[in-house]
Every structure is written in C-alpha cells, then in structure tokens.
Design a protein around this nucleic acid. Structure first.
Lengths: 199, 199
DNA sequence: TGCATTGCTAAGCGCTTGCTTAGCTTCGCG
DNA sequence: CGCGAAGCTAAGCAAGCGCTTAGCAATGCA
C-alpha cells in the first residue's frame, strides 16, 4: 500500500489511473524531491508507460501543483474545523493539536506541501501562497482573542504565531511513525503552545 | 557579494578557486536545491569553466558533503560555546538564543545543511548524522539538569528537546533578513523555550 | 454498423546532465 | 635554462531527461 493512499481520501481524482499517478507522485516527491523524481518513475509506480502520464496531466509540474493545492486546502480545513471550543485556550489547543496531528499523520504529503514550493511556477505558487496566509491568519486570530481577554501574554504577536506554526510544520521534516502516534504528538505540541502563550 | 562569504569564514579552504566554488555551490544549493543545481552553474558563479570544478572536487556530491560537514561542525560549536552560565535556565537560554541566531544569520548554509541530507551518500550521511546526535545530546543535557534541580518541569523529555531543536532549525526554512535581526529572533526563541520548560 | 472518443504503448526527439579527455599556460625550483 | 606540477579551458561523450508522435484496442453512442 502506498504511504498516503490510506489516510487521505483521493476518490475525487478521476479516473483511477490519474489517481494512481497522483499518489505515486506524492510518494516519489516525498522520498527524493521533485527535481530528482523522473516521469518514468511516477509512471512505473502507477503501472503505466511514461507517455500515459501526459494523457492525464500536461506536465510534471502540474502534478506537483495538484498535490500542493489539495494538500494546502486540506491543512487549512483541518485547522478551521478545529477552531472551536470555549475560549481562546481551548481554540488554540485544538488547532495546534489538529494541525500537528495532520502533519504527522500525513507527513508524506506534508513534506511535498512544505518543501517543494520552489518547484512551482510563479502563478501556481501565488495560488498556494494565498492559502498559506489564510492558515497563518486563522491561528493569529485565536491568539489575538486570547491576548484581548487576558488568557495569553505575548510580547511579539507575529513572531510567536510564526513560531507555533513553524513548530507544527517542521514535524513533516522529521516525523516517523516508529516512536510516537500522531495524536500523542498533537497533544504534546498543544501543551507546549499553551505554555508559550501563558499569561 | 555572495550571501555567505561575509558572515562565515572560509579561509581554511585553499586555494581561493576552491573556496569560490564552495561558496558558489552554497548559494546555488540554497536557492534551487542540490538536484536542480548544475555543475555548469556552480562553475560559472566561480568564474570558471565546468571542467575546473573537477580539479578541486571529485564530484558534485563531494562539494555538498564538504558544505554539510563544515556547517554541522559550525552549528555544534556554536551550541557548545553557548553552553555556559549559572544554572540550567541560563545555559538553555544561551544555547537556544545562539543556535537560533546562527540559523537566521547563516540561513543560506543552514538551508543546505538541513534540507539536502538526502542527497548525501550513505557514508557521508552517517558522518553528518553523528554530529546531529551530538547537537541533540548537548541540548538534552541542559534540560535534564534543569529537571533534576527543579528549574524545569517537563512531561516528555525527548519530545520537548526535539521540539525546541526543531523550532530553531525551521528558522532556516523561512528566515529572511527583512523583518527581524537574527539576534532579536534568538532572544524571542530563548524566551519561548524557557516558557515551554517552566516549572 | 459506423465512427469518434478515451486510454494506453512503443519508439524516439532534442536537449541537458555529470563528468572526462587532451592540451595549453604559468610557476617554483634544481 | 629545463622540467614537472598545478590550474585551467575547449570540446565532447554516454546517459538520462521531459515530453511528443503515431498508432492500436476498447468503449459508447448514432
């Protein structure tokens, strides 16, 4: 089984051959990086000849863009779904826990999402960058609310927001499922984030 | 001026042509990644023909290894030099501040050090991995001492150590000198780390 | 039944890659 | 002066790259 087919649902990608190419590309990009991955490698993971890739995607970069766009949207959705609970402490704890858990659980796609931005065309990068700003804004709002109601004490709002986000994102770089479960890590990181913000 | 020639001292690399190739390679690897960088690009940054590279280095990978090895040694040295002060709180604060500042100040070489490990041969990776373990051990010792004398309260020692390290390392991914100075960031991160550990 | 559409393969094109070869110049040193 | 070593360039090689072309089989609809 591929490293990503199970946890994330890719049924919206049709037909099945296009989906096999996409999940194969995620695994290959995560293992070797976009530049070191060949179209022949992606095609053979999907059980096809190299030319078949171009029936479904116009270029290797477009494949990366589809992955990056879907991954960013999924991460933002996870964060927004978790932005609930009573008061800023609960909201922030839920968001950090969910966002961290997602990066651990889906570290394969998260690696592509976070470390292959430079391989996108400027137009595609701009589209993805807008989602990244929304992610940051979502977290910053909860921290701002927490400062206003006295739940948090923060010297440097943008710096601290970036630090908490950065902590979760970097999980994609080092995470391996052998030591800890994604949700255990989410719990730990939510606690660390609350400590960073405490009044 | 190259992005890295000024802050780090490369005089130990002789002759000057080998040094120009090395600093050119750092800039190129940091900008585009190892795989996307051509030997022709590195050579032209050094003002030479492609073949001249092979007078000084046997392969493109060897150039990466020299950079990675030197960068890891420099990071470990920065951490060890900062491991002083009265008690675990001062020691930890100094180390996080110095390590973070180094990753911001030298974000160009730090990017190569942290994100191009996969391009090293297994033998070269093993050599560099030993230094990475020493970096982690250095930080963990100060936290362990702080738990023992009651300065810190930590639920998950390896997890918290990894989180603090990860926070500093991820600076290399996003840092740009336009918003904050490296030392301001070091100060902020030292404060956040102490909050994460507080009794 | 006829025929366009979809999904695929075998072959290969033009180009770029890391690296090599052959040969030139400059320099230090007896 | 004689000569080997060091440092460089022009040219190019074999391999691999992203992507294209031509054509075949299966499908669905008139």
């Amino acid at each position: 089984m591929s490293a990503v087919t199970s946890p994330l649902v890719w049924e919206h990608v049709q037909p099945a051959a296009a989906r096999r190419l996409l999940t194969g590309a995620i695994d290959a990009f995560a293992e070797r990086g976009f530049q070191a991955t060949t179209t022949r490698d992606i095609a053979s993971r999907a059980g096809m000849s190299p030319a078949a890739l171009y029936v479904h995607y116009p270029s290797k970069e477009r494949l990366l863009f589809e992955i990056s766009l879907y991954g960013h949207r999924a991460a933002l959705e996870v964060l927004r779904d978790a932005d609930k609970g009573d008061g800023p402490r609960d909201r922030l704890s839920g968001m950090v826990s969910a966002f961290t858990t997602w990066h651990a659980e889906h570290h394969t796609i998260a690696r592509v999402v976070q470390y292959e931005l430079a391989a996108l065309t400027p137009e595609h990068l701009a589209e993805v960058a807008a989602i990244r700003r929304a992610i940051s804004a979502q977290l910053e709002q909860a921290i701002t609310d927490g400062i206003a109601d006295g739940s948090f004490t923060v010297d440097d709002l943008p710096g601290t927001t970036l630090a908490i986000l950065s902590l979760s994102i970097d999980v994609a770089r080092w995470y391996s499922p052998t030591r800890r479960t994604p949700s255990d890590l989410g719990t730990l990181y939510a606690d660390l984030a609350l400590r960073m913000l405490q009044a």
